[in-house]
Every structure is written in C-alpha cells, then in structure tokens.
Write a protein that binds this DNA or RNA. Structure first.
Length: 770
DNA sequence: GAATGTGGAATTTTT
DNA sequence: TTCCACATTC
C-alpha cells in the first residue's frame, strides 16, 4: 500500500503534483529516488495513468533496476514491460520495435566503445588515412561528440581542412556501421530521435501514449537526450505528456562527457515550469558535514540555488589532516580506519575517495601490507573481459554475420591458420564490393578461400545446430564449437577465463528468466504473433507493427536480446566477493552512494581541483561540484587529507593544499595536524602515534627517510615542500632549493601566480603556520 | 603466431 | 612510475 504520510511536505508536494511539467531540485540524500518511485505509484494508483502510459528514464541500469524493485514493492503490478530504463535501453527497445522505420536490420547489434574504436581503426586503415594526423581516438571523440549534439556528418560545420576531413570520415563511419548492421551508443539515441522526428504518426502515437515522462539525474542529460525528451513530450505540438524532471545542478559532474547542466534552466524556460520544488531536507549527513557542503558549493556562480538542512544535529567536525607524503597519507588512513573498525564500524561503511584512479595504488599497497581487506571499484566488467567478448563475438556472428568487429575478433581466435595475408585480401574484397567481411568470403580463392570458407562453415554450422535450442544451451554449444574452452584449457593461466566462460551459460539462464523468455524455447523463431498491450499502429509504409509497449520477448529473439543486454549492461565490476572490505573508488563513482565514514584524499591544487580543469570553461566549478558530491557521501564522519609531496608520473610533486579548504566553514573543521614548522624532522608535531621517527627506522620505509633527507634545504632554514607566504605572490610551496646556505635560491610554486625563483636571503618569506 | 621490446601518455565514466 | 598500444623479433 502506498504510504504518503511519511513524506515530508516538499516530497509530498512533488509526488502529488498535477499532470504538468515540473522540475524537482533534489539535493543529495533528500530522498530523490523515493519521490520518483512514489510519484509513479501515486499516478497509477489514483488512476491518472496506466502503467503503459509511464516512461521513466535513468542513466544507469542500476538506477533503473532500483526503481523497478521499489515500484513493485509499492504496487501490486507487473512492472515487466513498463518503459522504465536507461536512455539507451529504451531507445534500443524503440528501435527494435520499429526497426524497419528506423532503417535498421532486425538483428542490428550494439557496439560498445571498444568495438567502436576498432571499427574506426579498421576504417582508417582501409582508406589509407594518416593515423598520425587523424588518430582513431580523436575521430571517435569527434563522432560521438557530434552525435551527442544530434548532428549527422552533413550537419557538422567544419572550419578547417582537418575538420572537413573528420566530417568525411564521420560520414564514412556511418556508412560502414549501416553496412554492418551495427549502431554505437550515441547512435541508439540519434536514430531514435530521427525516427520520431521524421515519422509523424509514430511520434504522435508515443506522445499520446506516454502521459508522464519521469527523468532521473536530469542534470546529466546531454543535448540529444534533451531533444529526444522534447519530441516524446510533444513540446510544441498538442497532446504531449508531462515531464517530471528530477536533478541536482550541484551534482553535475559529467560535463566532460557531454552532459549539459544548462538543460535544467532550459527545461524551466521551454516548459514554462510553474512547479519548481526543492528537496532540501537531508536524511543522510550530520550538520557539520552539510555545512561544509553548503559553504563550499556557495562559491559556484551559476546555481539554481539550494541549501541542505538536517534534523540530525551537528555531529562531529570534519577532520583534516596534512601528511608529509602520499605514503604517510596512506598510513594515516589505515590508522584511522583501524580505530573506526575497533569502534565497531563495518569495513564496508568506510569509503576512501580520490580524484583519479592513479591515486589508489599507494593506498592499496598500504592496505595490503596492513592486511586490511579492501575492494576497488571500477574495474573491468564481466562482458568486457577478453574471453567473454570473444564468446560474444561468435554469438554476434550467428545473429548478424555482417558485424565486422565480431568477425575480426574471432576469425582467427583460437588460431586456425588464418593469417594477416588472408585477412588483408578479404578486407580489400569487402571494400571493393562495399560489403561485409563475412559476405566477401565467397569471393576469396586459393588457400585464403579455403580457410575462410571453413570459418564461415563453422558459424553456419553452429547456427544450424542451435536453431531449436533455448538460449543457455545455445551458449553452451557455441562455447564448445568455437573451441574457446579447449583453447583456454591449454593455457596455464586459463582457469579463470574458463570459469568466466562457463558463467556465461548461467548469465544466459538468468537473463532468459528475468526477461521472460523462459516460456518460449526456440531462439530463432522470432516474435510471437501478439503484443501484450492492446494498441497497434499503422505506419507510413503501410506496415502494421506491434505496439511498443510489448516487452522485449515480443519484439526480438532471445539471442538478439541477450546480445543487446551484453552491450548495454556490461555486468557488474568484478569480484563483489569480500563484501566486508574498505571501499576504494573515485569521487565520480561514489556518486549516489553513502557511507558512515568517508576519506577524501589528495586534496591538493593540481589534483583536486585537477590541473586540467583550469583549462576548461567552468572547469573549477565542476571540480567544486565534484568535491560537493564527495562531501555529501558521508553520514557521520568525514576526513579530508592532503600531502606536501606526492609521487606522480614518476616525479615528486609539491602541491599546495586545495583551495577548497579555504571555502569550508572554520567551525566545522578540526585540524588533526598542525602545519609543520622549522626543519623537516625538527619542529614536526604529529598528533598520531606513528611519526616520522618511525619512518627513519629500518624496513621498507627507509627510502622515504632518505628521500626526505635529500629534500631538506641544506641548512638554509627552509626545506622543499614547505608552504610559504610571499607578500606579493601569496601562498606557495617550495619546489626546489639550489645553492648552499647564504646564497640559496628557492623555486616556489605560487599556484595561480606561477612558479618563481626567489633568493632566500632577499625575498621576505613567511612560513605558513596554523 | 607468440614473445619481447619501445615509445608515449597518464582526469573523471556510462551506455 | 606504470600501463598500454604497437612494432619487431624469433
């Protein structure tokens, strides 16, 4: 039963808004997902809309799943078949349903970024393009960028010869994809957009159907997604549904991949939003933590404006620690974590966050040495593993033989005597006829013809043999016939890979059950005759196609669906095992999560905010939002740390402490470490039990002591890494000291004022004390 | 066709 | 420093 009485007034207002477009500014920890799902449940329960009239869009599969789970616990309805999913997942469904109108083959396949890059490389090679001048990665970026803005090659404006060529290559790329029957991620959206904008009856159908469109993480939408929503909601046409947009402009941290926060204010304007509701009541963090977040984010100029509050009380202050080096920082984290765990805090309630992945190594190393279990987020995902991709490639070829990426991946893997020469000839033939590699095989003669012919027979044979089999068994057969299992069986390190391959059978079993393919066994029989939802549409070409409300089983074969699933949902990041472990991750991947205790590490100028952010427009603002996200992950205890020296790219760097420290409220901060005074080992007062003296004792830590000794300032009274204040240049860090006592000059990094070389006997420097 | 070497780059990430 | 892609070698 639906419980509305436990909602706070703002949440309640949002859930029960009338059927008009609304913008919900949902702060971190304000119950955003709850509002979203309760809104859906409320709309359905009050009979304002049927489940088929709802569309809810998220960015990640995880969020979509969460929404579905919560919804089914609130309402006694079957959520299967409802249009709740990621942008890409829903677009896939749309295109599958209307593949003819979208000019796609029924079995079109989805390229992941890896496949996309390899297609581009192949294409560049085939056209003899100078890969120095046009690197595959750059072209991929160019293409995706254009698509994310909704632009085809013909619509991209080129300002110089290089760009003009890029546009040509973009055009060629699209042609190649079309030949192969594959679409990349951005294409799923662009194709859907074009389909709906060109096909008026179809557009009207969906506009009439989706009375309520709910969008999660609206601040993360890109231009194309925004325009797609606009089409679906019938903006500018009559009869469109209402958009319920939920987002937080302060948590917009994906501009680098095309997200446009401006979409929030654009939405307000374009839809004349009368209902702007702010969810500012935070149910996660204690007061000092929220105060810190609020203070910090207030330094950003362009904001819709929002302040988090809590009933939880002030709680503990934020603890700030200055370490002498990255190694010491890691040691400190370990000591603090240990005492947290001794106090009874669960290991997985402690998160260690960093700005960039490279920072995890030192911490991991220290954790390993200390024997503390930990998990690092963001590794290779299941369907991205090489062996799994190989198996998938065989399946792809059976479902759509014209997928050249799949062809290239396994034509000679495991090796079957098809060498570079044969492939080259095949490539040329395919190019000259403008067909796929697979289709070009019959044109081959001689030895190449024989070996390639055998490969084709292998695929055809597998296809024939599995025609009547349910998906999991089909997978099983393919694993064997491809000889992948035998191949890895002969490898010394192949055991894990075999295990991963075996797991694919269970993945298929699970998929078939979850998606409702269980009752229909044959993989290739195609769609059954009737759709689930009643309506159907007649399209311009006179072909009647089943209503898009049907769940996947009615619009595609289990194999096609499974392959889509593998591309769209790459699977969990490895080894969820060891649940009881410290959680290491980048700040980006921490978004949406929460922990009792959080460490935000490496808070140094150049790292966080990252140096490359200075070059981008509003770059530092985005870094600040990132910091805001990091802070608001913590429930009870928050640590922040920075170091005087850090090894980065094989070089020792001396950074200033992050500017973000200056943007936090003093009363919410507790400094654990007084700023170091005087010589390195002299005036240091460490508040923790282990100190630099410990480092100087033998063991592996000895090299740190040496490193530090080297950096001492040769009796100048100053040392490298020390923070100083200059009357004109402000605060800086000594990066290097040359010459001996008396005639010493110091190289000092003043951050925005640049790096200066100053004579220590002349320049009036002051130590930074605190 | 696998093994070994070399050069270059090294935020952030989902689909 | 370390990882990766690519090239050359056996």
């Amino acid at each position: 039963m639906l419980k509305l009485d436990t909602l706070n007034p703002e949440q309640f207002a949002a859930v029960t808004l009338p059927a008009q477009s609304a913008l919900i500014l949902a702060g971190a920890g304000s119950g955003k997902t709850r509002v979203l799902t309760t809104r859906i449940a409320w709309l359905i329960q009050t009979n304002q809309v049927s489940p088929a009239g709802i569309m809810a869009v998220t960015f990640t599969n995880k969020a979509a799943k969460e929404m579905l789970t919560r919804l089914s616990s609130m309402l006694p309805i079957n959520t299967r078949g409802m249009w709740i999913g990621t942008f890409h997942g829903l677009c896939n469904r749309l295109l599958r349903t209307h593949y003819r109108d979208a000019a796609l083959p029924q079995t079109f396949q989805i390229l992941d970024s890896q496949d996309q890059l390899s297609l581009i490389k192949r294409m560049l090679k085939a056209h003899n393009v100078d890969d120095e001048k046009y690197p595959a990665k750059a072209l991929m970026y160019f293409i995706n960028n254009a698509k994310d803005q909704g632009l085809r090659a013909s619509q991209v404006e080129a300002y110089d010869p290089i760009e003009r060529r890029m546009v040509e290559l973009y055009e060629l790329y699209d042609q190649q994809c079309q030949r192969e029957g594959v679409v990349d991620f951005a294409e799923l959206l662009l194709r859907s957009y074009e389909l709906l904008s060109r096909n008026t009856p179809l557009r009207h159908h969906y506009q009439m159907r989706f009375r309520h469109i709910l969008v999660d993480e609206f601040q993360d939408t890109n231009d194309l997604q925004y325009n797609l929503l606009k089409l679906l909601a019938g903006q500018g046409e009559s009869g469109g549904g209402a958009i319920f947009a939920v987002g937080d402009d302060d948590q917009s941290i994906y501009a680098f991949r095309g997200a446009n926060v401006g979409n929030m204010s654009a939405f307000e304007r374009d839809y004349q939003v009368k209902n702007l509701i702010k969810l500012e009541q935070n149910y996660r963090s204690h007061g000092h933590i929220l105060d810190s977040a609020n203070f910090l984010i207030a330094n950003n100029a362009k904001r819709l404006g929002k302040n988090l509050r809590t009933d939880a009380g002030q709680g503990e202050q934020v603890r700030v620690y200055e370490a002498s080096s990255d190694l010491e920082e890691a040691q400190w984290i370990i000591e603090e974590s240990k005492s947290l765990m001794n106090e009874g805090m669960g290991r997985n309630e402690i998160a260690i966050l960093y700005r960039s992945n490279a920072q995890s190594r030192v911490i991991e190393h220290a954790l390993f040495a200390a024997g503390i279990p930990y998990t690092v987020y963001g590794g290779l995902r299941y369907f991205q593993r090489a062996e799994v991709k190989h198996a998938i490639a065989y399946l792809q070829l059976m479902d759509n033989p014209h997928n050249d990426s799949a062809f290239m991946r396994v034509v000679n893997f495991p090796t079957r005597g098809i060498g570079a020469r044969s492939i080259e000839q095949l490539q040329m033939a395919a190019d000259s006829y403008g067909i796929s590699l697979y289709a070009a095989v019959p044109y081959m003669t001689g030895k190449a013809g024989t070996v390639l012919g055998n490969f084709v027979k292998l695929i055809e044979g597998a296809r024939f043999e599995t025609q009547q089999l349910p998906l999991p068994e089909l997978v099983r057969v393919v694993l064997e016939r491809s000889t992948l299992l035998t191949h890895y069986g002969n490898e010394k390190e192949g055991a894990d890979r075999i295990e991963n391959l075996e797991q694919m059978v269970s993945a298929a079993t699970q998929f078939v059950q979850e998606e409702g393919f269980g009752t229909q066994a044959p993989a290739h029989l195609g769609p059954p005759a009737q759709a689930q939802a009643g309506e159907s549409v007649v399209f311009q070409d006179g072909i009647e196609i089943l209503d898009g409300g049907a769940p996947l089983p009615t619009v595609m074969s289990p194999l096609s669906a499974f392959l889509s699933h593998a591309s769209l949902e790459a699977g969990d990041a490895q080894a969820q095992a060891g649940q009881e472990a410290l959680q290491l991750m980048t700040v980006h991947s921490a978004k949406g999560l929460e922990f009792d205790a959080v460490f935000i590490t490496g808070l140094e100028e150049g790292l966080f905010p990252h140096e490359s952010s200075a070059r981008e427009a509003d770059g530092v603002d985005e870094e600040r939002r990132l910091m805001y996200v990091a802070i608001t992950r913590a429930r009870r205890r928050l640590y922040m740390s920075f170091t005087q020296q850090r090894m980065l790219h094989g070089q020792t760097r001396f950074n200033m402490k992050s500017r973000f420290f200056d943007e936090l409220p003093d009363e919410s901060i507790k400094w654990l470490s007084p700023r170091v005074q005087g010589n390195w080992f002299g005036g240091r007062k460490s508040t923790t039990a282990w100190d630099d003296a410990k480092f100087r004792e033998g063991g592996s830590d000895n090299k740190i002591a040496q490193q530090i000794t080297q950096k001492a300032g040769n009796g100048t009274g100053w040392r490298v890494g020390e923070s100083v204040v200059h009357a004109k240049f402000g605060e800086g860090v000594i990066v290097n000291i040359e010459g001996g006592a008396g005639a010493a000059r110091a190289q000092i990094n003043f951050g925005s004022a640049g790096v200066k070389v100053l004579d220590l006997s002349i320049a009036k420097l002051e130590r930074v004390g605190r």
